Simulated assay, not measured.
Amino acid sequence: MAAVLAVGGCATLQKSRDRIVQSPPRCEDQTAQIYFEADSADVSSEGRAVLMQAASNASGCAVRAVSVLGLADAAGDPNANFELSRRRAQSVTAALAAARLPPAEFRVAAAGQAGATNPDGKAAVLRRRADVILHLATPK
């Protein structure tokens, strides 16, 4: 019985300590991919949820930069696909700002359909997206 009480007392002390002592946030770079419907640059509710979670995970960290690369698949006109990928990158950037991401330098780029086909000529899968990298650091 005494051993059970001793172990139970340790657990209570650990819980009390956890309420007082908080671990510093893990400030490692984060990557997210936001997918789009065909011919759309609108960030879906699922995409907004992913960006909100990324912004939340970055709280407590220094955000050194944010890289956003808009992509498109190989279907259609290359110029239209480049413009679509540019709009996707801009939409994701605006959604990140709305998610209250800490201020940061944004590096926004568009690739259009470049790289949308494999060397054997087949379409690369899941190209209707924007790739996001949050470059994080431990605050000083």
Score class of each variant (00 low, 15 high):
Arg100His: 15
Gly115Leu: 04
Gln53Trp: 13
Ala104Phe: 02
Phe36Arg: 00
Asp120Val: 04
Gly115Asp: 01
Ala97Arg: 15
Ala32Gly: 14
Ala97Thr: 14
Ser40Met: 10
Gly76Ala: 09
Leu84Cys: 06
Ser67Cys: 06
Ser67Thr: 14
Glu37Asp: 12
Ile34Val: 14
Ala75Phe: 15
Ala104Thr: 00
Val50Ala: 08
Leu71Phe: 11
Leu51Gly: 00
Arg87Ala: 03
Gly47Cys: 11
Gly112Pro: 00
Gly47Ser: 08
Gly70Val: 05
Val63Ser: 11
Asp42Val: 10
Ala111His: 15
Arg107Trp: 05
Glu46Phe: 06
Ala94Asn: 12
Ala74Phe: 11
Asp120Ile: 01
Val92Arg: 01
Val92Ser: 00
Ser56Asp: 14
Leu101His: 05
Glu46Ala: 12
Gly115Val: 00
Ala94Arg: 13
Ser44Met: 08
Leu71Tyr: 13
Arg87Thr: 10
Asp73Trp: 01
Ala109Lys: 08
Val66Thr: 10
Gly112Asn: 01
Gly76Ile: 03
Pro78Arg: 00
Gln90Phe: 13
Val66Arg: 10
Ala65Tyr: 08
Asp120Met: 03
Ala99Arg: 01
Ala41Gln: 03
Arg88Ala: 04
Gly115Pro: 03
Ala97Tyr: 15
Ala104Pro: 03
Asp77Gln: 03
Phe36Ile: 03
Leu71Thr: 08
Ala111Leu: 14
Arg86Cys: 04
Glu83Gly: 08
Ala65His: 02
Arg100Val: 11
Arg64Asp: 13
Asp120Leu: 04
Val92Ala: 07
Asp77Gly: 05
Ser45Gln: 10
Ser85Met: 02
Ser67Asp: 13
Gln113Val: 08
Glu46Gln: 15
Asn57Trp: 13
Cys61Arg: 09
Arg107Thr: 08
Val50Leu: 05
Val108Glu: 05
Ala80Glu: 12
Ala72Asn: 04
Asn79Phe: 12
Arg100Gly: 10
Ser56Lys: 10
Glu83Asn: 07
Ala80Gln: 10
Ala99Val: 04
Ala58Thr: 04
Phe36His: 01
Phe106Thr: 04
Ala65Gln: 02
Ala58Pro: 09
Ala98Gly: 05
Ala55Asn: 04
Ala62Gln: 15
Ala72Met: 11
Ala65Phe: 03
Ala97Gly: 12
Asn118Thr: 14
Pro103Met: 08
Ala55Pro: 07
Pro119Val: 03
Ala58Lys: 00
Ser44Cys: 10
Ala114Arg: 10
Arg86Ala: 12
Ala94Leu: 13
Val66His: 07
Arg64Ala: 13
Arg48Asn: 07
Gln33Arg: 11
Leu101Arg: 04
Ser44Phe: 12
Thr117Asn: 01
Ala62Thr: 14
Cys61Tyr: 05
Pro119Asn: 05
Val108His: 02
Ile34Ser: 10
Asn57Phe: 09
Asp73Arg: 06
Ala38Ile: 05
Gly47Asn: 02
Ala75His: 15
Gln33Ser: 14
Ala89Arg: 01
Ala114Cys: 09
Arg86His: 13
Pro102Asn: 06
Gln53Ile: 04
Ala72Cys: 07
Ala116His: 07
Arg100Ser: 14
Ser40Gln: 01
Leu71Met: 14
Ala41Gly: 09
Val43Leu: 06
Val68Trp: 01
Leu51Gln: 00
Gly112Cys: 02
Gly60Met: 10
Pro78Gly: 04
Glu46Met: 06
Gly115Thr: 01
